[in-house]
Design a protein around this nucleic acid. Structure first.
Lengths: 215, 215
DNA sequence: TTGCAATCGATAAACAAATATCGATATGAC
DNA sequence: GTCATATCGATATTTGTTTATCGATTGCAA
């Protein structure tokens, strides 16, 4: 322990996955003007159990909750932001300026998490030179140059499945260290690169399946 | 057990979450012309352990693998499709035809999973009457009518955060039973509705945090 | 034909995560 | 001031998940 009130650095994976749910709920409560939120009320709204919520929040909260009152919302939000890295600042680039690519470039919500997609890249010459949400669309051959000059570590793949692996290879060779991949195919990456697959169709399919299994 | 070789219906949640990874990898291998895939090769490519892979596949595979050879890819893919519900057919509607809404309406990849977004809804009168990827954009006041007439169970929320809860309420009152929510806020739903939150900014933030924690 | 190696499946053990219990604390009602 | 209630945190227990072990099977090389 490097500090008297530091929490262990290793938080349970399942707990970490629930943090965004707590975060959004607490933002909601703060907007309602509430000062405290109890594990009972949080659990009720998020369909969890108070025991679960208390355990999770104990992992991330630097302060104790108050018996009978609950946790101080503002303080807890700050603790969660630290755990989730929302105060870190990071830039990313995106390859594949189709509909999804444009949606992501246009989305201003990333800023609230300290993230900024600075440019998009595409092979379609008709797109080169335009700006989407103030972000320039550049040709693929300038990818490495920009990534290196701005020291960007995160790449987003929004090309079609057939092109995803080669885009990944381009990103890796340019020095990208973390890839957010939307193409629903398996991508090979070297060991020193982090890959997060985001398969929207599989997400919807899992909801459909859950619906089928429930009703 | 209703059948001699049925698997238990309850598959571990973690195993289920890894299924799309196996699925995409096996599709890749099938395209390469491979007949068998061993747990060792799958593990290597997906950064898992052979033990883990064998355990996972044992949960879903109706047939045994062959010692020294591995699992038969085509058969395994079929088993995984059943588990993931990829052969089921379902329709969905979407509310909020902004950039993200349009991206989802345009995406043809849903069809490969038996899913079809049949229409989009928006309050912007300039959008009413146009078609995106062959899907009509309709006014909000027609939402209930269409959902009920087509007996649609799945609704997708792609409106901004300020409007998400009321769109959710509209969906619930129209009889929607499962909601895929992209707005990064807490949404209240009744007990008989399934909610899947998809927070793209939080996803990117988690990748950024993982990158920061790694390097 | 034989032996070795690569893999499988079954089962046990270890670890991670969730739940339960209980004592403590603080607040609010009376 | 007292008591009841609602909640917290610590700790123990249970359940879920992962990993390890080992015997069996199969294919391939010699």
């Amino acid at each position: 322990m490097t500090s008297n009130n530091d929490k262990p650095t290793a938080i349970m994976k399942a707990t970490l996955q629930r943090m965004p749910l707590y975060y959004n709920y607490l933002i909601d409560r703060a907007k309602d003007g509430d000062i405290y939120a109890s594990s009972t009320s949080i659990a009720q709204s998020l369909r969890l159990t108070p025991i679960q919520v208390r355990k999770d929040l104990a992992c991330v909260s630097q302060n104790s909750g108050k018996p009978r009152m609950g946790f101080e919302i503002i303080t807890l939000l700050k603790d969660i932001e630290i755990i989730l890295g929302y105060n870190n600042v990071d830039n990313a680039v995106l390859v594949g300026v189709g509909r999804l690519g444009r949606a992501l470039l246009s989305y201003s919500g990333f800023n609230g998490y300290g993230l900024n997609i600075v440019a998009g890249f595409d092979i379609d010459e008709d797109l080169i030179g335009i700006k989407i949400n103030g972000k320039p669309i550049m040709p693929i051959y300038k990818f490495s140059q920009l990534v290196k000059s701005l020291n960007i570590n995160i790449g987003i793949i929004t090309v079609s499945s057939g092109a995803a692996q080669s885009v990944c290879n381009l990103m890796v060779s340019a020095g990208i260290k973390a890839i957010w991949n939307f193409a629903p195919i398996h991508i090979n990456i070297p060991n020193n690169v982090i890959l997060k697959n985001e398969n929207l169709a599989a997400s919807l399919a899992s909801l459909s399946k859950e619906l089928a299994d429930t009703f």
